[in-house]
């Protein structure tokens, strides 16, 4: 879809998803910048890419794998040293109410 339009609301929404708090002037500025990026992508879209292998990475590399070997972990003190708050050997975070036990899935 060429000529993608982006509104201030879109920018606000994306900022919320990224946990960014932006004032009105920043929202204006970023909306313009995002618009430019989308315009650039629209230009790329005009190319005929039928038969071109999708590229997931800019480097001509694949299969960078490591053997399944255990290496030392940090000490608990090191793990927690940048934490704003701790509770014994744990990171301490604001109470999560009504959430799932864990987030993965």
């Amino acid at each position: 879809m060429p000529d993608s339009q982006i509104s201030i609301e879109d920018t606000r929404h994306v900022a919320t998803l990224a946990r960014l708090s932006l004032d009105e002037s920043k929202l204006q500025k970023f909306t313009g910048q995002l618009q430019n990026i989308l315009k650039y992508v629209d230009k790329i879209r005009q190319l005929d890419t039928a038969g071109v292998e999708p590229m997931a990475h800019a480097l001509p590399l694949q299969n960078v794998l490591r053997e399944d070997v255990v290496e030392p972990s940090l000490t608990v003190e090191e793990v927690l040293q940048n934490a704003p708050e701790t509770d014994g050997p744990f990171f301490k975070v604001p109470k999560i109410i009504g959430g799932d036990e864990d987030s993965a899935g």
Binding site: V69, E71, S73, L74, V76, P89, F91
Partner: peptide
């Protein structure tokens, strides 16, 4: 979801094991 029984984690060498003391299988 199936937890795979590798010795180390998915993308780093920290141990993949249950029952360790809290935050002892953690690396950068």
């Amino acid at each position: 979801h199936v937890q795979l029984a590798t010795k180390s984690k998915m993308f780093t060498g920290a141990a993949n094991g249950f029952g360790g003391e809290p935050n002892t299988q953690v690396d950068p």
